[in-house]
Design a protein around this nucleic acid. Structure first.
Lengths: 221, 221
DNA sequence: CTTAAAAGTGAGTGTTTAATCACTTACTTT
DNA sequence: AAAGTAAGTGATTAAACACTCACTTTTAAG
């Protein structure tokens, strides 16, 4: 209800800086492209700027001219993805689905399909984001609260509506959020990071939709 | 059924080496203890051997006298944990529980409680293991297959038995395994790595047991 | 007590690394 | 044509790093 104006310093400031320099040169694009690939594969700490420069066909100085520091190059990759993952697309989707009188099952399927598509299209960036959030404590502490807040705000609305419609059991919102978060983050991390899948089959989506809806115990209670 | 003798080179060789030097001096213990803390907090790549030495009150040379390389020090921490997590305790537990005629729910609760206790007691090592498996591709490719195999072999037996008893729906084993793996790895990673929890409340365990058994959809099918 | 092996030391080495800086080039604006 | 600006370069630098080695101290068995 209360729209806590969480002014996330790091994310907002980075977003501003990135807005300024909206015109990317060919070399800049190449640098980002190579950096994403190498960071995703070997991790930020195990990738040398000299390596990025060589593979991008660029002088090492060029990287620092544009991004100042190596850390800043990393943030230039992570921030736009994080800013995009929740707000933009998901809100449209949620709006669309809530107008129609769709069931929780239909919503869940559409939502998962949509988010999985987004991650598939940005697979390497997703890997970079998750790996670095997990790996660097400071980064985790700055970014994770934003993610949790952004996700909670959106999902609570949805859960409330489906509860009223009688599609979801009367469990505390907190428990449902925690479980949904656990299952979905587990699903994304397992498939896209541990198993390194390029895409998710429709069958696999059906499986997890079915699972979230019903679990697999024989007798419910 | 077929006991594939997966001879995991890295793990087995390391285990042998560790067996040899079974008597740890005070300084060795201190080195391992500090290394675990620092690797868990900042990651292997961001921790200098000089830092470990200083914090352990030891000369840098001492580290290399005992472990040869920094990489080897990391493995000396990871391998025993991995070797222990599945085989030893879990098998005893599974054996115990299968003799009694316990329900799937009881088994699930006991199993989760047991594994959560193990991870809580070795929280920092768990963080090191997961972080490094995720971060370094080569390590992932060498260790992950072993973990998947070890977990599958054990869980398939359990699933079969409870299916016969009618406690689990007649879904293909593969689907059940995938879901269980996703939910449980998600649960462990979310709580112990992302949220950095020191322990899990009994309520939280109840929640996930309930969730795995029933899901939270109102009408099953 | 003697002695040999094991544990421990810390200054030193060569390499890798992020970052700098004086400079050139190419393009745009007056 | 002159002036201004941003992109790009690559040689250079200082710090950090994993690792070595000649050496000392500790341990324990005969």
């Amino acid at each position: 209800m209360v729209n806590k104006m969480v002014n996330n310093n790091l994310l907002d400031e980075m977003a501003k800086i990135l807005k300024k320099s909206n015109k990317q040169t060919v070399k800049q694009k190449k640098i980002i492209e190579v950096a994403i690939t190498l960071f995703a594969e070997k991790g930020y700490s195990n990738t040398a700027t000299s390596e990025i420069a060589k593979m991008a066909g660029v002088a090492e100085g060029t990287i620092f001219k544009h991004y100042g520091t190596k850390e800043n190059l990393l943030l230039s990759i992570m921030v736009p993805f994080i800013k995009d993952f929740f707000p933009t697309m998901a809100d449209e989707l949620i709006g669309e689905l809530m107008n129609d009188k769709c069931t929780f099952e239909e919503f869940l399927r559409a939502f998962l399909t949509n988010r999985i598509a987004f991650i598939s299209e940005n697979r390497e960036i997703f890997q970079v984001v998750i790996k670095e959030i997990i790996y660097k404590e400071e980064l985790k502490n700055e970014i994770l609260p934003y993610i949790l807040e952004a996700a909670s705000v959106r999902l609570v609305k949805v859960i409330e509506i489906f509860k009223q419609r009688g599609d979801i059991k009367d469990i505390p919102n907190d428990s449902i959020l925690k479980m949904l978060g656990t299952v979905m983050s587990g699903f994304f991390i397992s498939n896209f990071i541990l198993l390194n899948k390029k895409s998710i089959s429709e069958d696999a989506i059906e499986d997890i939709v079915f699972f979230i809806l019903n679990g697999f115990g024989q007798s419910p209670q």
